[in-house]
Simulated assay, not measured.
Amino acid sequence: MTLIATHLCRHGIVLSSDSNLSDGTTGLLAATGPKTFAIPYLNAGLSFAGAYGVGSESMDTWMPRFITDSQAAGCATLGDFAERLRDAFQTGTAGQSPDIMLAHIAGYATGANGFHPEFHFVRNTPGMTSNGEYELASPIFTTTEDFHARDCKHRNEPSGFGNDGTVQFYFNGFPSGRMAYLAAVEHVGPFLRGVWNTPVLGFRPPSTLAEFVGYVRLHMTVIHELFAMSGQTEIGGDIQTLAIAPPESGQSSALNLCHVGSLP
């Protein structure tokens, strides 16, 4: 299936994914491909997990064209973009046997009080079962905005965060990878805090968006290595990351899609 993870903090937003593509019949590794895409005109990005295509077209060509067409159609906000993607997925897969499709959309929106981060989640599954599997895919797609409307604790701050080093993360994908990712966050976090709180070692938390990319890659690498050493290919290949700087942050406004070399 894949693993997608979106992390937000006061330094910016980082979307990430693996790059392995599985054969829909055998479940074995078939190829690699892009799963994280820039939406430059919205200062945003998108990561995708699930059935890698809409109708008969592969996602690596369908999604870039959708992004270009959305700009041409005057789709001017992240919310509009998410709703348009929801409708396009639903129309493009109509009449097919439903398969899980999940998309993270994250970036910075502009409102009456300036900018703020948003995280939109487009999907066609109602939720998860008690054992961590996704419920059966539906032909009906939904979308929600889960950060600014629900999880943000500092709405008075343009970045959405205070100065306490808080990180908000969202992740979806292949069940064992998703659950391992949660375990990595829960266990790597205390390890990192312990190291950072030992001054003699000379380490410190990320203080820039570029360093925050490394923080995200560290967690993704743990999962990639787990799958590689277990001979499993559902998750793996290059780690794809997309870093988005807050407007007016003084950081480069260029979106940075970097493919890290394949892990052994």
Rank of each mutant, 00 (worst) to 15 (best):
V167N: 01
Y181F: 15
A183R: 14
N197K: 07
V185T: 14
N172K: 06
Y170V: 04
S176R: 04
L201E: 02
V167Q: 03
G173D: 09
W196M: 01
F174V: 06
G189Q: 11
V200L: 11
L182K: 15
A183E: 12
R178S: 05
M179K: 13
A183I: 10
E186Q: 15
M179A: 13
V167M: 05
F191P: 00
A183F: 10
E186W: 10
L192E: 05
V167P: 03
G189T: 13
W196G: 00
V167Y: 09
G194T: 07
Y181S: 09
L192R: 09
F191W: 14
L182F: 14
R178F: 05
M179T: 09
V195I: 09
F191S: 08
P199W: 10
E186C: 11
Y181I: 13
F171P: 01
G177D: 03
L201D: 01
L192F: 06
G173M: 03
V195E: 02
G194P: 04
P199L: 11
N197M: 02
F169I: 12
Y181R: 08
W196I: 07
E186A: 14
G177A: 08
L201R: 04
V185S: 12
N197H: 05
E186F: 10
Y170R: 08
V195S: 02
P199G: 07
L201G: 04
W196N: 02
Y170N: 04
A180M: 15
V195H: 01
G177K: 08
F169N: 05
F191M: 12
A184R: 14
Q168E: 11
P175G: 00
S176G: 00
W196A: 03
P175I: 02
T198C: 07
L192M: 12
F169M: 14
Q168C: 08
R178N: 03
P190A: 06
V195P: 00
L201H: 00
G173F: 06
F174T: 03
G177I: 06
L182T: 12
A183K: 15
A180L: 15
F171I: 11
F171T: 12
A184P: 04
P175A: 09
A180K: 11
A184Y: 13
E186T: 05
S176D: 04
F171L: 14
R178M: 12
V185K: 15
V185F: 15
R178L: 12
R178Y: 05
V167R: 04
T198V: 04
A184I: 15
L182D: 06
H187E: 03
P199H: 06
H187R: 13
G189K: 12
Y181T: 04
Q168M: 13
P199Q: 07
E186S: 15
V167W: 12
R193C: 00
H187F: 15
G177E: 03
T198K: 07
M179S: 14
